[in-house]
Design a binder for these strands. Structure first.
Lengths: 188, 188
DNA sequence: CTGTAATTTCAGTAATTACTGAAATTACAG
DNA sequence: CTGTAATTTCAGTAATTACTGAAATTACAG
C-alpha cells in the first residue's frame, strides 16, 4: 500500500481502532490490524509506524500482540533483513482465528473455573443455589462452544453456501426437529 | 443471599471480575453481576457494596451500567423505598441479552461504517483493494449476525433440545447440503 | 408538606494502561 | 568476523479509566 493513507482507508482504520478499544485489544493494535487487512502488499514495521503516526517501539509491541493472536503472517524478502507482515487473505480465516483465540483466552478458563467450583459439595443452601447457576452456565457455554467449533470446521466455500441460506436456517432447525420428532419429544 | 460470601462463591465472583476486565466491562461490574446471578434473592445496593467491599457510589455506577445493558431487573418491596436488583433466572436469557447488546454496540456500528465506506467509488488501486476487503468483511459479519439472530429466536427449551444434538450439528449441515444438493452445487 | 433514607452526581485521586525515546540486543549482508 | 540496519526491551511519562467521599438530589413514608 502506498502511503500516505486516503481518507476512505483512514476512516476505516480509525473505526476499527475505536472498536478495538472496546475489546481487550487497544486502539493502536486495532488500527494496525485494520491497516494490514486493507493492504494488498505486506507492510514492514516502518510502514506501519509512518502510516499511523505512532512510535517505532509501539509498532513493535503491537505486532508482538498480533503475533500472539496468530493474526499476522511474517514474510521476508531475499537479501533484506527487514520483516514484512500481512493479514490472511480470507476474512473467514481471520474470523476463525479470532473466535479460536477468544475461546482459548476467555471461554476455556471460565469453563475450567466453573468445573472446579462444581466439584465440592455445597456447604449450605446459598451454595447449593449458586452451584445450580454455575452448572447452568457451564452447560450453556459448553454447548455454544461446541456449536461454534462445528461451524469453524467449515471452509470459506462451505460457509458461503451455508450462510447464503440466510435466515432460512430456521427451516434447517425445523427440519432437525422433524427428524428428532420421531424419537420421543412432542413438538415444543 | 446471606453475607459474607463463602469461598466458593467468592472465587466465582473474582473469576468473572477478571473476565469482565478483558471485555469492555470493568472488573467491579463483572463481580457485581456474578454476585447477582449467584444470588437467589434480589440484592439492594448496600448488600452489593458490603459483599464486594467497594464504595456505595461505585455500586451505584455499576448498577447504572448493568441497567444500560438490560442485564438486571429492578424490584421494590411494598413500604420500602429501597431498590432491589436481580439477574434473569434463565442463563439463556442472560446470554441472549449479552449477544444482543454487543451486537448493538459493536457489530451494527461496524456494519454501518463499512456500508458508508463502500458507497464511494475507489479513487485508486489501493482503495479498490481495500474496498474489496471491506465488502468481504461486511458480508461475513452480516451473515454471521443473521445466523446468531436466528438462534436467539429459540427459547430455552428449544435450545436445549437443539444443542443436545451436540457436535452432530455436522449432520444437520450435511442434511442441508443434501437438500441443497438437488439445486446445482456439486458437493464441495 | 416534611423529614429522612436512599440514590446519584461529581470533582478529586488512585490505579491502570498506553506510549515514547533511549539503550540494548539481534540478525545478517558483506 | 564486522559493521550496521532492524528489532526489542524497558524505564519513565502521558493518557485513560476506575474508584472514593462529600454534596446534591430524589423518592416516599408519615
Amino acid at each position: 500500500m502506498s502511503l500516505p493513507l486516503t481518507p476512505m482507508i483512514q476512516s476505516c482504520i480509525l473505526h476499527f481502532g475505536e472498536m478495538g478499544s472496546r475489546w481487550g485489544i487497544n486502539r493502536t493494535v486495532g488500527q494496525m490490524y485494520a491497516l494490514l487487512v486493507l493492504s494488498k502488499e505486506p507492510l514492514c514495521a516502518d510502514d506501519i509506524t509512518e502510516a499511523l503516526g505512532i512510535s517505532r517501539s509501539n509498532t513493535s509491541m503491537g505486532l508482538k500482540e498480533l503475533m500472539s493472536w496468530e493474526l499476522v503472517k511474517l514474510q521476508h524478502r531475499p537479501g533484506e533483513r527487514k520483516e514484512f507482515y500481512s493479514a490472511p487473505g480470507d476474512v473467514w480465516d481471520i474470523a476463525k482465528t479470532l473466535i479460536e483465540q477468544r475461546r482459548k483466552r476467555e471461554i476455556d478458563p471460565t469453563l475450567s473455573t466453573l468445573r472446579n467450583l462444581l466439584i465440592d459439595s455445597p456447604a449450605n443452601a446459598d451454595e447449593e443455589y449458586a452451584q445450580q447457576r454455575m452448572r447452568e452456565m457451564h452447560e450453556l457455554i459448553e454447548m455454544l462452544t461446541l456449536w461454534t467449533q462445528e461451524i469453524q470446521r467449515l471452509d470459506s466455500a462451505q460457509l458461503g453456501k451455508l450462510l447464503k441460506l440466510g435466515s432460512s436456517i430456521g427451516k434447517v432447525l425445523d427440519m432437525k426437529d422433524r427428524l428428532l420428532g420421531g424419537k420421543k419429544e412432542t413438538t415444543k
